[in-house]
Computed example of a mutant assay.
Amino acid sequence: MKSTPTPHVATGVTKEELQLTFGAGRMRYDVTVPAGTRCRKLDGGADPWVVCDLGFIEDKRSILYSDADIYGIRVPEDKITDIKPVAKRFG
């Protein structure tokens, strides 16, 4: 069963190709996130921007893809452009 996605308050895209590291504990991954990759600003948190389009990861059944989907690939806010707020939903 998939978990409920964390609510987000804005969307944007990466300004440029980025070399990022993400993961938890001993499982750390180095990834290249292409310019123009869609990201979301999560509702709350100290570093809230995460990649939401994981299409650049070729093997959709890999541990890399699974961990990116579960833990998120954090992106510095100054590397995001075309920021648009998301309408809040009620109910």
Rank of each mutant, 00 (worst) to 15 (best):
E77T: 11
V31C: 07
A10F: 06
C52T: 13
I63C: 03
K2M: 08
H8F: 14
H8E: 06
P34M: 06
M27R: 12
K60G: 00
I63W: 04
I83W: 03
T14F: 04
L42H: 07
I73E: 01
D47K: 15
R26F: 08
I83F: 01
L64I: 06
E17G: 13
A24P: 00
I73Y: 00
S62E: 04
A35N: 10
D30P: 01
P5N: 15
R40P: 00
I73P: 00
A46M: 02
E17A: 05
G23Q: 10
I80G: 02
V51C: 02
R38K: 12
R26G: 08
D53H: 10
V75N: 07
R40V: 15
G23F: 03
T21H: 05
T6R: 14
P85Y: 09
R26L: 09
R38W: 01
P34G: 05
K84A: 13
P7K: 15
T21E: 09
L20A: 01
D43K: 15
K41M: 10
E58Q: 13
E17T: 14
G25W: 05
A24M: 14
Y29V: 08
L54W: 02
G36T: 04
D67A: 03
V50F: 05
A46Y: 03
A10G: 08
K88W: 02
P48S: 13
D59H: 09
G25C: 05
G36S: 01
S62Q: 04
V13Y: 06
R40K: 15
R89G: 12
I70E: 05
K84Y: 07
L64S: 01
T32P: 00
E77M: 11
T32R: 14
C39P: 05
V13I: 12
I73L: 04
P48E: 05
R28Y: 00
V50K: 12
I83C: 09
R38M: 08
S66C: 01
Y65G: 00
H8N: 10
T4N: 09
L64Q: 05
S62F: 03
K84N: 09
K60I: 02
A46I: 09
G36R: 02
I83H: 07
I63H: 06
V50H: 07
T32A: 08
D82M: 12
T21R: 12
Y29L: 06
R89I: 14
I70H: 07
E17P: 01
M1I: 11
Y65H: 14
D69Y: 04
H8P: 00
K2Y: 03
L42R: 10
R38P: 02
G72V: 09
M27T: 10
R28L: 10
A24I: 15
Q19C: 04
R38C: 06
G23T: 14
D78F: 13
D53L: 10
G91L: 11
H8W: 12
E77N: 11
T11N: 09
E58D: 11
R26W: 07
I73W: 01
A87L: 14
A87R: 15
T81A: 13
P5L: 14
K15P: 00
D53M: 11
T4S: 10
A35F: 08
G55Y: 01
K41P: 06
V31T: 05
Y29E: 05
T37R: 05
G55N: 09
E16K: 15
P7C: 10
S66Q: 05
D59Q: 12
K79S: 12
